[in-house]
Simulated assay, not measured.
Amino acid sequence: MADWSQMPEELLRLISRRLGTQFDVLRFRSVCSSWRSSVAPSLKPFPNGRFPMIPDDSTGVDFLCKRTIYLLGAPRSGDRTVPSGWLLKVAEDVPWGMNTLNPLSICESAPLPEDFPRVLDLMNLRVVELGHEYVLRGTHYHGYGDNYDIIDTIKVAFLCLDNENYFVLFRDVFHGKLAMFKSREKRWSIVQDMPSPYDDMISFKGEFYTVDNAGRTVVVGLDLSVTLIAQPNFDGLQTKCLVESVGELLLVYMHWDETPRFKVYKLDREEKVWNEVKDLGDRVLFLGDECTFSASAADLGACKGNCIFFIDQDGDIAASSLKIVVYDMESGIFGPIEDYAGYSELFWPPPDWIASKTSEP
């Protein structure tokens, strides 16, 4: 039998460079001491520093915070039905520490149940990273210690460009304008070309994409250049949301008329158009306050894909304690999450199979 601990160091380094998530890194490092020494604990360095505010305010500071959306699942079993997974968002908010948030909002989760295990054996769970969100938490400084009041939370798109802490942030500022921060320059620069206010932005395949009110979609380069990739062809009064799903860039068009409905489009960059998608197949889209992500219905342990999840901010579509609403693409019907088997268990509270045994479904 081969002794995996004796693999050449060069080969271990090549393998480690292809690890896709932080949990892949943790599992790789847990094999043995030689594997652990071949790769750093983190995939890429994450900046936990302070950033100048826009406009500059001598009494305030922005902190960059990272949140990761995880799907935890019981191990698959050949003779049992796989229970629904559990979605949670883990926030790494400097200097406030780590906590858990509602996966679709910026609200903190309720306290964990008393019987929740203090340690989860992640080697005996299915763990999938579904997405990340990055926010700047604007604060006001009181002038002593680390005494800050949080005054706002701003969504940003984030790119780490190499392994030397070179990163770029992309955010909105005022009147629909966008700005870019480069860590090497340590300052914000305004993107001048946006004829109408933006609706959403996303970091996709190493580039910054943004869509404005009319559906005009552009890529903003690191030199602040703007490249048109889709012509405007939408009603500017309706909300648009960008989502990455299995390597494709999707746009969800949220149309609120007498009969509210969602439409989904896929980007054709060569033709510079958004083509409508009638069926998402097994995919499920999640539209959160600060980020969007997608997942497979099979991975979620749910029986139905082709759905969109979002939070009903006004509470006028469905009466639900969490205000989480599901839009069924096939029927065109909105409904509370409780109406969809297997989906209500995805959120809160944690499922029984975690609280009792994390090694068995």
Rank of each mutant, 00 (worst) to 15 (best):
A319Y: 13
P45G: 10
D282R: 04
A341L: 12
A230P: 08
H132E: 09
V61F: 03
F334A: 00
A341C: 10
D299P: 02
A74S: 13
L12T: 08
K44C: 14
Y343N: 06
K177P: 00
W274C: 07
V94Y: 14
R216H: 00
T21K: 08
A91S: 15
L136Q: 06
N163M: 12
D152A: 02
R29L: 07
F158V: 02
N99K: 13
E258S: 15
P95Y: 08
C32E: 09
R137C: 01
V219K: 14
L101T: 04
V325P: 08
V264E: 02
R29C: 05
C107I: 10
R29H: 05
E360F: 13
V135I: 15
C32M: 08
F181C: 01
G60C: 14
V31S: 05
E345T: 03
R29V: 07
V211W: 00
F208G: 01
E185G: 00
T217I: 04
A302R: 08
R80F: 04
R171V: 03
P55E: 07
D279W: 08
N306I: 01
L125I: 12
A157P: 01
G78H: 10
L237W: 07
L64T: 14
N147Y: 13
P52E: 11
G20C: 12
P45A: 11
Q22G: 11
M7I: 15
P41S: 05
D289Q: 15
D193C: 00
E330T: 06
A2T: 11
L300F: 01
G332C: 02
P351E: 09
V220W: 07
K278E: 15
N163L: 09
L43M: 06
